[in-house]
Amino acid sequence: MTLLTFRFAPSPNGELHLGHAYSALLNQKLAEATGARLLLRIEDIDTTRCTPEFEAGIFRDLNWLGLDWEEPVRRQSEHFAAYQAVLDRLIREELVYPAFMSRGDIRAFIADSEKRGRHWPRDPDGVPHYPARDKALPMKERKRRIAENMPFAWRLDVETAVARTGMNLAWMEFGDETLQATRPVEARPRDWGDVIVARREIPTSYHLAVVVDDALQGVSHVVRGQDLFSATSVQRLLQEILGLRAPTYFHHRLILGPDGRKLSKSLSDSGLATLRDAGVQPADIRRMVGL
Rank of each mutant, 00 (worst) to 15 (best):
residue 169 L to Y: 10
residue 196 I to F: 06
residue 180 Q to H: 11
residue 176 D to W: 02
residue 240 E to I: 05
residue 174 F to W: 09
residue 225 G to L: 03
residue 217 Q to G: 07
residue 203 P to Y: 05
residue 239 Q to E: 13
residue 189 P to L: 11
residue 221 H to M: 09
residue 240 E to N: 13
residue 244 L to G: 09
residue 246 A to Y: 05
residue 176 D to P: 04
residue 174 F to R: 04
residue 176 D to Q: 05
residue 205 S to R: 00
residue 204 T to D: 00
residue 229 F to G: 13
residue 174 F to L: 14
residue 190 R to L: 13
residue 181 A to H: 06
residue 231 A to D: 13
residue 210 V to G: 00
residue 219 V to R: 04
residue 220 S to Y: 00
residue 196 I to H: 11
residue 186 E to D: 10
residue 177 E to F: 09
residue 226 Q to Y: 14
residue 206 Y to V: 06
residue 180 Q to N: 15
residue 232 T to F: 05
residue 173 E to L: 03
residue 223 V to G: 01
residue 210 V to I: 05
residue 191 D to K: 11
residue 232 T to H: 04
residue 223 V to Y: 02
residue 175 G to D: 11
residue 250 F to W: 13
residue 203 P to G: 07
residue 234 V to F: 08
residue 173 E to M: 04
residue 239 Q to S: 03
residue 178 T to F: 07
residue 218 G to E: 02
residue 194 D to M: 10
residue 185 V to K: 11
residue 229 F to T: 15
residue 191 D to R: 13
residue 168 N to Q: 12
residue 210 V to M: 05
residue 182 T to N: 01
residue 249 Y to L: 14
residue 231 A to C: 09
residue 248 T to C: 07
residue 243 G to F: 10
residue 211 V to R: 11
residue 213 D to M: 05
residue 229 F to K: 15
residue 185 V to D: 09
residue 246 A to F: 07
residue 200 R to W: 06
residue 246 A to M: 10
residue 198 A to I: 01
residue 202 I to V: 14
residue 196 I to G: 06
residue 230 S to I: 03
residue 208 L to P: 09
residue 237 L to V: 08
residue 227 D to I: 06
residue 191 D to T: 10
residue 172 M to V: 00
residue 174 F to H: 10
residue 194 D to I: 06
